[in-house]
Amino acid sequence: MAAGTTGEGTVAGARTHRVAHHFDNAEQQFESGKLGMWIFLATEILLFGGLFCAYAVYRSNHPEVFIYAHRFLDKTLGAINTAVLICSSFTMALAVRAAQLGRRRQLVGLLGATVALAACFLGIKGLEYEKKWKEGLLWGAHFHAKLAPAPPALPQTLPPVPAAAGEERSLIPPAAIGPAGLARPGQPAVAEGPEGPPHDVQVFFAVYFLMTGLHGVHVIIGMALLSWMMVRAGRGEFSPGYLTPVDLTGLYWHLVDLIWIFLFPLLYLIR
């Protein structure tokens, strides 16, 4: 692993003028960039990992909510979007190949195709969001869809907060709604009736919007990066010996695809 060992099948006549002063050669620089990028991807995995954790916890504790609520998602649009992202990954892989082979015009074209497919993905996603918005199928406090029959009434009153004495009372104005909600002794957990929708359907939509939203933000960032790469490729900045930025953008884009590959079955194809 010591610096300077040249792996087979990698650089030979790479352009050297791009090598920064603290690297020995282009290969060391390229490999460093790649390692750095993969470490960054690892942090992305952990960032999304938190959301996957939230998903797992809520799905395992409220399976009925997930089974009930996922029907409101459009399976067809989801599948089309999956295919769109896979195609964009494919064009991205081809773009890196074109860069390696020094085909500049092909590179620009393929990057353009990738951006176009990404835009297509976002468009379809936007259609889905719009529908949810109209139907009130939103997260937490904003969920207001009318789901026929209402669940049995639950105690809505909170125990009175004991008034604090004298100076000890907080001067920060109290919040509109105080913390509440863990079980109190003597209150049985209410099971879902077979006829009505389950409780807490809004939790599914919170998870749905968080996961697809964070993913969507990544798509937008990816589009920006890809467009920038297109400009640089057009200027002829890349060559078979120097394509680190294209390669790293590609890795990022594939990761965005990778995450969607899991989101699709987890959100749309629940059974």
């Binding site: 937490g140 913390p179 509440a180 909600g181 939790v203 919170a206």
Partner: peptide
């Protein structure tokens, strides 16, 4: 008001 950690929202 996403509600993931808020018991008042499930």
């Amino acid at each position: 008001g996403i509600g993931i950690f808020d018991p008042a929202l499930g």
